[in-house]
């Protein structure tokens, strides 16, 4: 049986009549056409589908529609402001932290959530924040550098 849910994505209010077992990932990709959030495993093990829900990084493949009632969600598409890239996006681009790019949105969202809760994380805390985000291309070095640079410039 469907249920009515109200939630916010990237600052915009939504009201939807959905199957409560629908995954947040599918709502974002299929219903809202926000395909920047990727599916890597569907089991919460790879972090490619990471979005921010009420200031916390979550695997959107593990969040069900019934759990997003009243929540505020931010996806990779919500980071740009007035056509300006988020400092994390800028830093990933500048530091060559992107190769295939499939893990990039999730990686950036994990880092963004970290900064929301801890503006001055240690290097170890940075690595912990992205520990759930797999990357098969970079070896993480340039990703950690990119995040560290945003921290140091704040």
């Amino acid at each position: 049986m469907n249920m009515q849910i109200e939630f916010k994505v990237n600052g915009k209010d939504y009201s939807m009549d959905v199957d409560p077992k629908l995954r947040l990932l599918d709502i974002l990709r299929d219903e809202l056409d926000l395909t920047g959030t990727k599916e890597g495993c569907g089991e919460g093990e790879c972090g490619t589908c990471t979005v921010i829900m009420d200031k916390k990084a979550v695997n959107s493949c593990l969040v069900l529609a019934s759990q997003i009632q009243g929540k505020e969600i931010i996806t990779i598409e919500g980071l740009e402001e007035n056509g300006e890239l988020d400092p994390l996006q800028e830093s990933f681009v500048k530091n060559g932290a992107i190769q295939c790019g499939y893990c990039t949105p999730g990686m950036i969202m994990s880092a963004k959530a970290l900064f929301m809760n801890n503006p001055n994380p240690t290097d170890e805390e940075i690595k912990t924040a992205i520990e759930g985000n797999l990357c098969r291309c970079t070896g993480y070095g340039k990703i950690v550098t990119a995040i560290r640079e945003v921290r140091d410039e704040k």
Partner: peptide, 8 residues
């Protein structure tokens, strides 16, 4: 391709 990938 960096900007397209960084913005989703």
């Amino acid at each position: 391709d960096a900007i397209d990938k960084a913005t989703g």
